[in-house]
Design a protein around this nucleic acid. Structure first.
Lengths: 201, 201
DNA sequence: ATCTGTTTTAACTATTTGGTTAAATCAATT
DNA sequence: AATTGATTTAACCAAATAGTTAAAACAGAT
């Protein structure tokens, strides 16, 4: 046996890259093979069909998304702790895997039901989080706010900078990639401050 | 001559729908023809190539995006007025044309440079907006905040609910479409309050 | 040395799809 | 009635692409 694990990994990495950039429809098996440094025949030898390969990538990417989400909520933190920790860790995750949002949005369009189903299968407990927010409001630690709005607020503030990277860089930051890096580094603090100010009495 | 204008419009509407849902690669000329209630031959009779048709849709959608953006900034409003008016009108625009964000994000991935270039060609003056924010901070009317962060914050809060519609509906709102409608109706007020609280001293 | 699973090569098939064409039909205008 | 442009029908072409196949080469394990 030759170093096998390596080839499959190379394929997965290549497929991730191509699928994310081009989407399922735009992706070409040949390009994935090229990107992985192998040929089409071998690609099909590992993953029989384009669809099977895509499913693999999809589930991998999806696992990534909930990695932090689950962690943060399972820890039984106070709302205040949750806020800081979630924002910090979620943006950190997105820095490591900035392709996630684009990929998910792409799929939301293609097969909305699929992505919703996947979400329901996760350990993440939305009720718990809702309760945490409502409790904090009852205790007058934060001003009252519908949980759905607060959660979508936080998520949007974390996600948007990665989805809109080219626009932010090209348009607001004069195409300066260094400035974008700085901007992203500032984000956790900026978002935490923004949300805290918006919430705490 | 038969009612001509009508057919071209039908094609544009159909193409918009299909291109947005499937992206340039996923879209099929046959599906666009079906959706428009005509046949492929006639479709090519109006728009010679898929690419030409896509370009048409792209420029139409793009015009929509900056419609409100330009309007809001050109009016020489105070920062406070700008905030309320922009958020209200931008969310209203997105309610009318909820497909815009998905489409743009799709294109950001496919051809980032193109979308940035288009943005530069618009009348929208980023410096003016930056100055407005910095002035408000200098006057101590709001707490200091880097303009890029504030702008991306506002945009994300407005855009995200439309991009993530299926997830919000399916996951957070028990798949209840009425709840989503309510949620969206509440949005302008919620976002305005959120941002104001976050900013004003 | 032989065996086994990996990888390459290269040609091939089947299907999808964008785009074309030509002839016929239709509907309004003249 | 004749003209003109819009629309349909239906067949077709060419290119791209997913997927297959068979044979050979290769590399490590036994």
């Amino acid at each position: 046996m030759v170093k096998k694990q390596n080839t499959e990994d190379k394929i997965v990495e290549a497929a991730k890259k191509v699928f994310i950039q081009k989407g399922m429809d735009g992706a070409r098996m040949q390009q994935i093979a090229d990107e992985a440094g192998i040929n089409k025949a071998l690609l099909h030898y590992y993953f029989r069909t384009k669809n099977k390969l895509f499913e693999k990538i999809f589930s991998l990417v999806f696992r990534d998304i909930f990695e932090v989400l689950e962690m943060a909520v399972m820890k039984e933190l106070s709302f205040e702790q949750f806020l800081e920790q979630f924002i910090t860790e979620y943006i950190a995750l997105l820095k490591r895997k900035p392709y996630i949002p684009q990929f998910v949005i792409h799929e939301i369009n293609r097969k909305p039901q699929r992505i919703v189903d996947q979400m329901k299968n996760t350990k993440f407990d939305k009720q718990q989080l809702f309760a945490l927010i409502e409790q904090a409001a009852e205790d007058k630690r934060i001003r009252p706010i519908p949980p759905v709005h607060l959660i979508t607020n936080i998520l949007s503030l974390c996600l948007f900078p990665f989805v809109a990277k080219p626009i932010i860089t090209g348009f607001a930051l004069d195409g300066d990639k260094e400035k974008y890096k700085t901007y992203i580094d500032e984000r956790p603090e900026q978002v935490i401050t923004f949300v805290k100010q918006a919430l705490f009495l």
